[in-house]
Amino acid sequence: MYMWALLLLILSRFSLLLSTDYYYLLGCAAFLGLAKGFRTVYWSLVIPNYVPIERLAAALGLYSTLNGTFIWIGGPFLGFIRDVTGSYKKCIFVINTVTSITLTMWIAEFIYLRYKKRKEDVIEGVK
């Protein structure tokens, strides 16, 4: 579900690039808010899925620290892109690119883990 939320975010941000009408822009903004809501709800399920319960507090603290650092660095970087290009379209493109890279890496991890599990199942079936 989190991957779907990221995909919805990419699509809704991309649709903002195509908007010229006020009501279309309003619909894009509503869709973007819905996608961000899904992302926020499902993100709280991602970390506990990867981290043992005894390390959950440390993982959430690390996530908060890194999230704040990336926002602190990324915000001025996007502002610089906006100032240099004079358009928000390049900023949206950069944000969508980073989100796409995240989605691609996560899908690659799922494919790798599925392949690894199948290989282990075949090895156990031979024994």
Rank of each mutant, 00 (worst) to 15 (best):
M1E: 12
W4M: 00
A5I: 05
L7K: 08
L8Y: 01
I10S: 04
R13Q: 13
F14N: 04
F14L: 11
S15N: 04
L16A: 03
L16Y: 07
L18G: 05
T20S: 13
T20D: 12
Y24A: 06
Y24K: 08
L26C: 06
G27I: 01
C28D: 06
A29G: 03
L32H: 14
G33L: 01
A35R: 05
A35Q: 07
G37C: 11
R39Y: 14
T40S: 10
V41N: 09
W43P: 00
L45V: 09
L45S: 14
V51Q: 14
V51W: 09
I53T: 10
I53L: 09
A57I: 07
A58V: 05
A59R: 04
L60C: 09
L60T: 11
G61Q: 05
Y63D: 10
S64E: 12
T65C: 10
G68L: 07
G68Q: 14
W72E: 05
G75K: 09
F77N: 01
G79C: 13
G79N: 09
T85S: 13
S87Y: 06
S87E: 09
Y88V: 03
K89I: 02
K89S: 11
K90I: 08
V94W: 04
V98A: 13
V98L: 14
I101E: 03
I101Q: 06
I107W: 00
A108N: 04
F110G: 12
I111W: 03
L113H: 11
Y115D: 09
K116W: 08
K119C: 05
D121N: 10
D121K: 10
V122A: 12
E124I: 15
K127E: 13
